[in-house]
Amino acid sequence: MFIGPFMLVFALVFLAPIAYSLYLSVFRTQMVGGTTFVGLDNYARALQDPQFWEGLSRVSLFLVVQVPIMLGIALLVALAIDSGRLYGKSFFRISIFMPYAVPAVVASLMWGFMYGTRFGLVGNINDTFGITLPNPLSPDLVLASIANIVTWEFVGYNMLIFYAALRVVPHSLYEAAEIDGASQWQVVRSIKIPAIRGALVIATIFSIIGSFQLFNEPSILQSLAPNAITTSFTPNLYAYSLSFSGQQYNYSATVAIIMGLITMVIAYVVQLRGMRKEA
């Protein structure tokens, strides 16, 4: 009885959108011919769609390169701040966390201006030093440029997760280590990292989801580099383009569902692995 109101909200807010997407994904609406039931045709099409797979492999590459770098930096900073050997540690903590408070859209615009080779920061550096830096918005480099923005945005957020986990490590452990004559490096390796494994797993899962959902940054930069960032640059951008310029709502829903499933599976595998090691 008491679960009634909760179930109602749950059904409305969580189940209904998923159900509606599933419903959309088994139909096909044409400009000529109207709407027909097509069963799993949209799924078959998505699985053979080179644009979808290209986008997926792009975000996968992003995942395996950007996420370790970002989490590595976040961990280093968290350990440095936690070590207590840093002057002005609250200043560093705030400054590094600050970019997370900047909306992704604003951050992308800001970086987009800096990347400009004519009037942007890159252009200014070129003019000042008389050199020619490679264009960060060229097709070869644009993914790395986006990774740079995302890293800048989220290092602080992940740092805070790690730092919070480090703060709850009992001090008695450090004292015991000191008595045993352990070096700082040994303390980090044998006490701190194992103690925050849970936080590491959580941060990794968030980052995986974030990578697969990459949308804001490429979508904003698209107007600056329309030829480098195609309409199917990431799976999310592809779903968006399909729906909004192409009016292929059904196929767009299908792509979204498949991406959701893939993300869930990978996040789940990471969680299982993370937990098993912990045990």
Partner: peptide
């Protein structure tokens, strides 16, 4: 085209590549 809006939206995906590659 009766679907020119869509066609124009993929112009940079296709013809646009001639400008950068």
């Amino acid at each position: 085209l009766p679907f020119q809006v869509y066609a124009n939206s993929i112009f940079n995906d296709t013809v646009g590549q001639a400008y950068v590659s």
